[in-house]
């Protein structure tokens, strides 16, 4: 057995063992959840694993001349190398090392909370909670949520039966011939109770907050009637004596943060940040992550560095082109392989 053949076998076996190990580790990662899996795959033993994987891939390209001679195979294996290198470059540790060596201060990943009309340049780092400053600030002009219309009133009986009633004023539904009738009487965007002349009054107060609710009238088959308020944010407990639970459900179509990027007091960029439409500016991506309306509307933007991203994408492109070239165009659809089988 010559030496080259032996080294090829060793590299192949090593590759197979590493692939099997990563398969098992991925399944383990799925069981522990994303947060723990992320820290597991970035732990020191796993960093060693990634380096060994990288070395075996490079060794494979070195000892198998076919991998170099066949462009599709080279693209696949080199693509994996590029993805691994790009991921290492983009990782939190990669950022830390480069910041240390090059004296830069790039934020790997964090979030920022901005109130409507306000601007912010501080980012809370994920994991550590450390606060860092961007070289520019983001101003939130306004934040809005667009909902699918009309929303639904969900009625659940104690035995698990469910009815969905479109939340349109005037809609009536008798749940069953011997059961009650439910009618949507009023819709509120911002439900409030005021005290006027010693009387409690329910009002829909425009602006300055959000408390979506429905007023419903329940006519029981016995002839009695009652008014109930159902809140979107505070899924109600059944009223004492009620046999049904009411839930007001609306589904968001879009969350939009209208922002401006300010540098030295000047607006240098504008964008409506939505889910799937992040802002890309100065090496960072800004994502619509969350929102809130306590003490006024605010948005929470995810801030992610774009370092290493295009290296990873280049690796993806190489891998994808290589796989299709090799398995579809070179082998599967070639005339040669239709008549002969290996």
């Amino acid at each position: 057995m010559d030496k080259t053949y032996k080294s090829k076998r060793v590299v192949l076996w090593l590759g197979l063992v590493l692939i099997a190990a990563l398969t098992i580790l991925s399944i383990y990662g799925a069981f522990v959840g994303a947060a723990r899996a992320r820290s597991f795959f970035n732990s020191v033993p796993l960093i060693l694993y990634w380096f060994v994987f990288l070395i075996v891939l490079v060794l494979g390209i070195g000892v198998f001349p076919r991998l170099v001679r066949t462009p599709s195979l080279l693209l696949i294996h080199a693509g994996c190398v590029v993805v691994l290198v790009g991921s290492m470059w983009a990782s939190h540790r990669g950022h830390a090392i480069r910041n240390e060596l090059l004296g830069t201060d790039k934020i790997p990943q964090g979030s920022m909370q901005i109130y409507e009309g306000g601007s912010e340049k501080h980012v809370v780092l994920d994991g550590t909670g450390e606060i860092k400053e961007l070289p520019f600030s983001i101003r939130l002009k306004d934040f809005g949520i667009e909902y699918y219309q009309p929303g639904y009133l969900i009625v659940q009986s104690r035995n698990g039966k469910t009815w969905r009633i479109p939340a349109k004023v005037g809609t009536r539904l008798q749940l069953a011939p011997d059961l009650m009738t439910v009618e949507i009487v009023r819709k509120f965007e911002n439900f409030k109770i005021t005290l006027e002349q010693g009387k409690h009054q329910v009002i829909d107060q425009p602006g300055g907050g959000s408390n979506p609710a429905l007023e419903i009238r329940v006519d029981h088959s016995s002839g009695s009637a009652a008014t109930r308020y159902v809140f979107e944010r505070f899924a109600g407990h059944p009223h004492p004596g009620d046999e049904f639970q009411f839930i007001y459900q609306r589904m968001a179509r879009e969350y939009t943060s209208r922002v401006e990027v300010l540098r030295d007091g000047r607006v240098v960029a504008q964008k409506n940040i939505e889910v799937n439409h992040p802002l890309h500016y100065a090496g960072y991506h800004f994502y619509q992550n969350s929102y809130g309306s306590e003490a006024g509307w605010y948005t929470v933007l995810g801030v992610v560095s774009d370092r290493g991203l295009y290296i990873v994408y280049a690796g993806y492109a190489m891998l994808c082109v290589g796989v299709f070239w090799l398995l579809w165009f070179r082998e599967l659809l070639s005339a040669k392989h239709r008549v002969t089988n290996r």
């Binding site: 799925a30 959840g33 597991f40």
Partner: peptide, 25 residues
């Protein structure tokens, strides 16, 4: 594009990777 992470080790991602790796193997 949506969440800011091209790989977040979400359970579905992890199992998709595992199934891809089985065929690589």
């Amino acid at each position: 594009i949506a969440w800011g992470d091209y790989w977040g080790w979400d359970p579905k991602e992890s199992f998709s990777l595992a199934s891809w790796l089985v065929y690589v193997g």
